[in-house]
Structures are given as C-alpha cells and as structure tokens.
Design a binder for these strands. Structure first.
Lengths: 349, 349
DNA sequence: TTGTACGCGTTATCAT
DNA sequence: ATGATAACGCGTACAA
C-alpha cells in the first residue's frame, strides 16, 4: 500500500512542500484558504507525517521519557497515568521505559536521550547512586520523582526532585503505632540498599523507636532475601511468614509499602491471627487497594496525583526555560483505617 | 554539549562513514581489526546512533506497538510486562500506548503505524467493533489479544487473535456456583457493549443459568452506571452497594473481573455479610492479588504469561513471514479458593 | 504569501 | 574490505 508523503500532498494541491509544512504546523504566514484546501487533501489521502523525519530535522523531538524502576509497585502505575495525561495536554509524546533492577538509570537515560533526541526525563522510583559528574553528562533537564534521598554532596542546582520526606513520614507512622501503645513493632522492608526508599523508611522507623526510648530489635527487622527487593504482595506474604516462624513476639507490623502490607495481612490471617485484634498492621503509599482490603489498611498516603502533576509541570517549565531546578517535598497523610488498634486490647486478648 | 555523529566517528578513525555503519550493524564484510578500532572510538566518544535517522532510512523501524484499552485492569499490567520482556529478547522496541475509552483503536493504530513506521501491532483488551475494510487499511500485521469476540463476518485470514473463550469459561464458573447449590447468583459487570469481554462473560452467565433451568433475574445483573466500564475495585465496590440496597436476595456474586470482586468483597464486609458464609464470591482473570485477599478469591485464571508470550511470538513470526494468521484459544483454569462455599451452608445461617 | 533547495544522520548501492 | 554518494521525509532559510 502506498504511503503519501508531504510531496504528494503538495502536488495534489498544486502548492510547494513548505506551504504544506506550514499548514501542518500551524504557522502564521499562510493563507487560510490554502490551508483549508491542504488540510482537506491530507484528510482525504490519510497522510500522516513521518515522525522520524520530523525529529531528525527538529534536533529535538517533542517528547519526554519516563524511566521507572520497580514497576511491580502499584504506586507507580497511578503516577504514570497522571503523567501521561499531563503530557497529552501539552502535546508531548511520552516514552515509557522500565529499568531492570541491575541497570543504571543514568546510563539508560543517556542512551534514550541520544537515541530519541527528547527534551526531558522523569526518573520514577529507584534509588539515587549517581555521581554528579555522570549526571552532568545528561544534556536535557531531568526530574527525580519519588526516589530515595539524594546525597547532600550533589549540587542542588543541577537537578530537580519531587518527593515526600520518607524518613520523617515513616517515623510519623511509627510514632502513631507507639502512640497506640505498641512497643514490639516489626518492620517489613524489601530493599535496604544505601539511599533507597526502603532504607529511608527503615531509618524513620529507627528514629521513632529511639525517640521513644525503645531499642531496635534486629529480629523484628524483616527483609526479603530474594535480593530483588520487589514491593510485591508475594514478598510481603513470604517475609511475614518467616517472621511468624521465628516466634519473635510483636503486636504491630509496619510494612514500608502497601503491597507488602497486603501480603502480610494474608499471612497473618492464615496463621489464625486477627488484625487488628492480635496484630496491628500499617502500610505506606496509600494505593487505591488499601481502601478495599479487609480490614482496610492504615497507611501513609502520598499525594500521587499532585506529585505526578508537579513533576511534569516542573519538567515542562524547566524545558521552556521558565524555571530553575527545584526541590519540592510533599507531605504524606496518615490515613487511619481498620488495620490498627490500641496495643492494650491486643495484650488483653 | 556536543553530540558526535557517525561522521565524527569516521573522521576520528580515519575511515568512511559506511565502514562505521557496518561496524555498528554487525555487517559481515568488515575487517575485525578496523571494527574493533571503531568500536573503541564509539565507546570513548559516547556516540549513540540517532534513532530517527535510522528509522527514516530503514523505511520500517524495528519496533512494534502495544495498544491497550483499559489500563486500570491489573490483568493487563501483567501481560505488558511479559510482552516487554519478549520484545527485549528480540531487540525490538516497544511503543506502549493507552487508548481512551472513547477512541477507536484502529484509528489510533493507523496513526501510530504511519508516525513511527513500525512493524506490527498488538491490541490488548477492548472490544472488536471494526469493519473489515478498516482493518485492511492497516499495513502491518496485528494480533488481537484478550479482546472481546470477533464477529464471524470478518475474514479469519485477515488477522490473528489470542484469547480464552470468555463465554464458555464464564459459563463454567457459573456452572460451578450452581453446582454448589446456588440459584440466586448476581453478576457484576462493568461494561456490556456489543462484543465486549463483559458482554461475553454475561452471556456465559446466562447460558449456564438457562442450561440449569434457572431464569435470569434482571435485578441481579448489576452494571456500573458511570458508563466508563472500568474494571476497577471502586466500581466493584459501588455497584455491590447498589445491589445490596436493592434488597434483592442472592447467595452468590460473580464478578467478571477480579478487581471488581475485590471491591465487592469490601462492600459485603461493610454490610456485615460473611464471605463465603453468607455470600459466595467468584472473580475472573486470576490476577496475583486474588491470592492475597481475605478470603482468597475463587477465580477463572487466565494463563497470562502463556498468552502474552504466544501473542508476541505469533506477531514476530508473522512479521518475519514465517507464519500465517492464527486464532489460538487458551483454556482458563478454575481456581477454587476460600471465597466460595456450598449454598446449603449459606441458607442455614 | 508562497516556492526552491539544502541538510538533518543514517543505511544501502555501487564502485574501487 | 572499504569509501563515495544517493536517497529517506521533513523543516526552514532564502529568494521571489
């Protein structure tokens, strides 16, 4: 089947290619009549401009990339949806790419930027372990969103970030559990690498315990041993089972991701334990699903929509030269649901 | 910052551009020594070929597109992951694009094909409402995966499809529920447009009831009224509440998607009903989450991984001219978990 | 307001 | 085995 090009359209309308180009790209210098005639011909012939040729010419494509690490976490799915909508509004294309656990996101970014000649990058999730030198090789603006903490050593003016203060909010959750009278609080983490979100949330946990004069019991710090560090329900389930098998007593379980918490819920149920009757459970993220579990899940709700919108808005502003690099921290909201209760009741039972 | 091109590499190595091109693309006619020298220079300079220029020249990009309708259904998330892996293996790029509920997937496909010059398309989800004429305008091979039924009127040799027999498997689930003694079985559907998956599963429901001499009670056919037809937990929750408010008695609830079932689980819990004590619940899809709900969910498990692999494999084979169009139907597996029980017990309570 | 001609970075064809 | 060169389809400076 024949694919018409811009030349064919030009011939059909008896005009030059540049006139057609102007019509397509809404240039001001064009006679409305000719433009209409051209647009009609385009519709009729089913002509669609070749993206490759455009991008080749334009030196940079009207597109951004979203590089996401840890797709298994439903939290990101929500963010992507919002980011995609925002891109559509701006008529930007969005290149979505997953990054494997063992890949270096900045390396991938570099490759993608050169391959696709795009205008900006959003890093979603993962952890920050890049040298400033490496970052500076990236020729387009980029925004880190929902990544682990970024070392102070990196110049704040060389990148943007959108985040919540994972360490602080995590501590807040543990404060709440302690406030309910819990002292033997287990924590479920999937990854604990340096600078990762998991690590930060673990630190918050330790902060809070220490602030309340409670020693951290290493036996209650539960980490998956698959090394993959997925925030998955399966991981939450398996790790909780191991915790139960260890017989180490606890009255509350804090999972650093809702997906983990949901797996934990199931494991406790199978062990014949009531939530929150026997054990209180708290999650983190505030994903949709947390509202529908039985019992519903107490969690730290991150403002997904706002964060996603802020991320894209910031990136577009930087691309347009309308903004400098910024660091925006959102507050998470402690959403108290059915899965947590006073320890006193627990002890009685 | 300066971006080296193939010419720069050529100059650096004192060779012609074509030699560099040959080195990059693993052409046979090249001296291993020169090739090595070139590859070194490429690494050193950080050169990455410009995808746009490549695709422009190559008339078709080494890429396929996945067009997905209904991203909110977690079932698709799993499929995408597998498809992506398969693409990586074949060194194909994968363009992922969501289709809005009101968009026509074939129109979008046409646009994407022309814009990106890609080699094939996978349609994921949605329903089939396209004229053969329109389909034939698509110049690249395409495979429908997990879409609703395709009208007999369309020539089977003009497209491929991977699916499960939704109508039959749906009936099988209802057979099972009836086998447990249930007769007042409600059904939860999100969309019921012609040819949609929802419609097919509804038909299977009716088939089974009729085969067992049970009349279909329209009051037990529950459909969301948001018109969007999302397979979301929220939809399942809200629709179930409406059903409960209607006071129409039922002992079993069949949700045509697990996400809906999870919402239903919650709604019943809030109404003080036990599952499966008071009401049995069954889902459809077999998503991961179904194993972790409390109670765990009886569901029709679709072989996601196999289907996704078959889809990509088939598409690549057709692209390579190694295969004709095919229609593969997979069997779903009835996975019996905790959420369903004999009606007898229900009646007693 | 419109048309002509060049070049973007790459691959393929042809010589050598 | 290697190099020169013509496309690929488009945007745009420049001329008209």
């Amino acid at each position: 089947m024949f694919e018409p090009t811009i030349k064919d359209i030009a011939k059909m309308c008896g005009v030059g290619v540049s006139t057609v180009s102007r019509a397509i790209n809404n240039h001001p210098d064009i006679n409305p009549e000719t433009k209409e005639r051209i647009m009609d011909a385009i519709k009729e012939s089913g002509y669609v401009p070749n993206d490759s040729a455009r991008n080749l010419k334009r030196v940079d494509a009207k597109a951004i990339a979203v590089l996401i690490k840890g797709i298994s976490n439903p939290f990101f799915t929500s963010m992507i949806k919002v980011i995609e909508q925002e891109c559509k509004k701006k008529h930007y294309a969005m290149e979505l790419s997953h990054i494997e656990a063992d890949e270096d996101e900045v390396d991938v970014a570099q490759k993608v930027v050169k391959e696709k000649r795009l205008r900006g990058i959003i890093f979603l999730g993962g952890l920050f372990s890049h040298s400033e030198e490496k970052l500076q090789k990236l020729t387009v603006p980029f925004v880190f969103s929902a990544v682990g903490s970024i070392p102070e050593s990196i110049n704040k003016n060389s990148y943007s970030s959108i985040s919540v203060d994972d360490r602080k909010e995590s501590a807040r959750m543990v404060d709440y559990l302690i406030g309910l009278g819990h002292t033997r609080i287990a924590i479920l983490i999937a990854e604990a690498e340096e600078q990762s979100i998991g690590k930060l949330r673990l630190e918050g946990y330790c902060d809070s315990l220490k602030a309340h004069g409670i020693a951290v019991n290493p036996k209650l710090v539960c980490q998956t041993d698959d090394g993959l560090g997925h925030f998955s329900m399966e991981n939450g389930y398996l790790t909780t089972r191991k915790l139960l098998e260890s017989k180490e007593p606890f009255t509350a379980l804090y999972a650093v991701a809702d997906a983990l918490a949901i797996g934990a819920l199931r494991a406790l149920h199978e062990a014949g334990l009531e939530v929150p009757g026997d054990v209180s459970i708290a999650g983190y993220d505030g994903i949709d699903m947390a509202n529908y579990t039985v019992p519903s899940l107490t969690t730290m709700h991150q403002p997904v929509e706002e964060m996603a919108k802020a991320t894209t808005k910031l990136l577009f502003n930087i691309i347009a030269g309308r903004a400098e690099h910024q660091h925006i921290t959102y507050k998470a909201e402690l959403v108290i649901k059915e899965s947590t209760d006073y320890a006193a009741r627990t002890e009685k039972s």
